[in-house]
Simulated scan of single mutants.
Amino acid sequence: MSRHITSAISQIFGKFANKEFPKPIQDFINSSYVNIMGLDMQEFHTPQTYHSLNALFTRKLREDRVYSLDANDFISPCDSLISECGALNNEVSLQIKGMRYRSYDLLGEHFTKEEKEIVNNGTFINFYLSPKDYHRYHIPTNLKVLKAVHIPGRFYPVNMPSLKKRLNLFIENERVVLLCETASKKRFYMVLVSALNVGVMQVAFEPKIKTNADILQSSAYSYDNLYLNKGDDFGCFEMGSTIVILAEKNMLELDVKSGENVKYGQTIAKIS
């Protein structure tokens, strides 16, 4: 697969976002972005604190949020809009209403048929992070990571207009797929999907994964004892993007609906 123009655009934007301009200019860039995009900075440091636009994008909370420690409560991994959610029809899920795609294709080639089949007739949730959202992502429940797969691809926008006109957008874009197992042995996938201007998707526990790089082949990493706790910060998007969760049948009882805005730490489902 050759490099796509969307990758070049994202790399150029990434260089601009990472550049540290003289402080008066950087302060102007940061403040302008906050005002134009309507960022809510109440839980963060002031815009002038950040030495680059990317540092502002990937800002951390001053204090972690309070969330349920009940093992059965599944929390939102991010601040986002639920662009679509519901039941998987066999292994078919919705990009948005009327735009279906095959979950098996989203997961890629490094998972066995048996591993993919766990999502048949299961549950899916699509989280859209806009450019104004908090860009870090967190672990939704105590879990064990069984496998991580990096799938290079394109960088089409994942906003609502793009979702409405481009079939299989999630499948075309670069992504990182995590196969996870809960403490109760339930399995689900967490899929990080790139977007235009997303220079990097960070995965803190696997430094070998380099996104939006000159890598054309997918790669897989397996783990025996990689345990992460609910609320753990395990990386970020360097701009807005999408997270897709695909859960096995009868694992999640959803407490959210399509079109709802959610916050990291909010309980969005019960683990059955």
Rank of each mutant, 00 (worst) to 15 (best):
97 K>W: 12
127 F>Q: 04
136 R>H: 14
78 C>A: 14
85 C>T: 10
38 G>P: 10
78 C>T: 15
118 I>N: 10
72 N>R: 13
8 A>G: 03
191 V>K: 09
153 G>M: 08
171 I>F: 04
114 E>F: 01
37 M>Y: 15
19 K>Q: 11
19 K>P: 00
115 E>N: 04
73 D>I: 03
69 L>W: 07
126 N>L: 15
49 T>I: 00
188 F>Q: 06
254 L>G: 11
176 V>M: 12
109 E>L: 04
225 N>W: 00
57 F>T: 10
221 Y>I: 05
186 K>I: 01
165 K>G: 02
169 L>E: 08
53 L>G: 07
237 F>N: 12
141 T>R: 11
53 L>T: 13
92 V>L: 09
197 N>Y: 15
50 Y>Q: 03
74 F>G: 08
28 F>H: 11
84 E>S: 15
260 E>T: 03
28 F>V: 06
19 K>R: 12
57 F>L: 12
47 P>V: 00
235 G>P: 11
225 N>A: 10
76 S>W: 11
177 V>I: 12
269 A>K: 09
231 G>L: 07
171 I>W: 02
209 I>Y: 09
222 S>H: 13
54 N>A: 10
127 F>I: 05
234 F>Q: 08
191 V>H: 06
145 V>W: 05
195 A>W: 13
233 D>W: 09
104 Y>W: 09
11 Q>S: 09
84 E>N: 15
150 H>M: 09
120 N>Y: 07
134 Y>D: 08
2 S>V: 01
272 S>P: 08
166 R>G: 14
87 A>H: 14
23 K>L: 02
107 L>T: 02
255 D>P: 00
130 S>V: 08
215 I>G: 02
220 A>H: 15
259 G>A: 14
230 K>G: 11
35 N>E: 14
227 Y>Q: 12
252 L>H: 11
29 I>M: 04
41 M>W: 08
178 L>S: 01
18 N>M: 01
128 Y>N: 03
14 G>Y: 03
82 I>T: 13
7 S>W: 01
59 R>F: 12
215 I>P: 00
193 V>E: 07
75 I>D: 14
114 E>R: 03
109 E>D: 13
223 Y>P: 10
238 E>D: 12
82 I>W: 14
10 S>N: 02
116 K>D: 04
128 Y>A: 06
243 I>G: 01
129 L>W: 07
168 N>M: 12
59 R>N: 12
118 I>H: 09
269 A>I: 02
237 F>G: 07
134 Y>R: 05
262 V>C: 08
78 C>S: 14
271 I>F: 03
239 M>I: 08
26 Q>P: 03
162 S>K: 01
118 I>C: 03
14 G>P: 00
101 Y>C: 01
185 K>W: 01
112 T>F: 04
243 I>H: 02
106 L>W: 06
57 F>I: 08
221 Y>F: 15
2 S>W: 13
164 K>L: 09
190 M>Y: 00
192 L>S: 14
155 F>W: 09
11 Q>K: 13
77 P>H: 03
56 L>W: 07
251 M>L: 14
86 G>S: 02
119 V>Y: 07
249 K>A: 13
118 I>V: 15
92 V>A: 12
38 G>N: 04
54 N>F: 02
75 I>L: 04
256 V>M: 04
227 Y>P: 05
75 I>R: 10
